[in-house]
């Protein structure tokens, strides 16, 4: 079985985000970039499935500007087998990304697609679902546990009511939650090996896909500053304030 794992290059989760002064977006110059955290969980899960002898090859796909290849290299250093890089603007919308993934799936024929549940930059949480729709494959979103059992897969999902476990036949698209596993760090020997692993370069035009944005971003602004809290004397005052001032109950 082949597993396709998608990874996105995003601003590192430790970085304090700053909005550009012209409100056209957030500052990315000289900002540390890393692999989107839930994508790391996806890579880790693929590696564990392969290590358990239930997959033969792990292909890493990243879509974005040139530097996205570094993110692929990180996944290869963690232990994945090879990479596919599709050149596209970093602003490519989820639908555009889903179309590209659909093409790559046609070409590579994986049985399982593992993705992060969402990217921490735009927090869209749409691509996995759209890929499932485009391919007409079953989807299992917010996976916190994945078990492969022959031609079937059992996924435990984090949902509002608690945990839901679903079983379905492969192929499927699964989007991974941070609780799925603890991603490994690349060992030194694997970093050296990653250097020699191939990354195929493609572009949206070569694949014949129109990824023109359908949406227009007007401006990006900082969220309002959180106002200072107040101390209340007792429960009665708290209830009164929640009712009359905050108007939440």
């Amino acid at each position: 079985m082949k597993i396709l794992v998608t990874v996105k290059r995003v601003i590192d989760y430790n970085v304090q985000i700053r909005v550009k002064s012209d409100q056209s977006g957030v500052e990315t110059d000289n900002v540390k970039m890393s692999m989107n955290p839930p994508d790391e969980n996806a890579v880790e899960e693929a590696l564990r499935i392969k290590e358990a002898g239930k997959a033969d090859e792990i292909i890493i796909l990243s879509i974005g500007e040139e530097k996205s290849q570094e993110t692929i290299r990180t996944a290869l250093a963690m232990g994945a087998d090879r990479g596919i890089y599709v050149k596209a603007s970093n602003d490519t919308e989820p639908l555009g990304v889903a179309k590209i993934i659909e093409k790559i799936v046609d070409k590579e024929k994986p049985q399982l697609i593992l993705m992060g549940k969402q990217a921490i930059d735009d927090d869209s949480n749409q691509t996995g679902q759209m890929v499932s729709a485009k391919l007409n494959w079953t989807q299992a979103t917010f996976a916190s546990k994945i078990e492969i059992d022959g031609d079937n897969i059992k996924v435990t999902r984090e949902i509002d009511e608690g945990l839901e476990t679903i079983k379905m036949p492969l192929p499927i698209v699964a989007t991974c939650d941070l609780r799925l596993n603890e991603p490994r760090y690349a060992s030194l020997p694997n970093i050296m090996k990653a250097k020699k692993k191939p990354i195929e370069s493609l572009s949206a035009e070569e694949l014949g896909i129109d990824i023109t944005p359908r949406l227009k971003q007007l401006k990006v602004i900082e969220p309002p500053k959180r106002s200072k809290g107040i101390m209340v004397a007792d429960v009665a005052e708290l209830v009164q304030k929640l009712k009359n001032e905050a108007k939440v109950i």
Binding site: E70, R73, A77, Y185, K195
Partner: peptide
């Protein structure tokens, strides 16, 4: 280089974890 950045990432992750 890419590898050098990965070496740093791994070392930092090891220290942190």
């Amino acid at each position: 280089s890419e590898e050098q950045n990965l070496l740093i990432d791994t070392t930092k992750s090891f220290v942190k974890a």
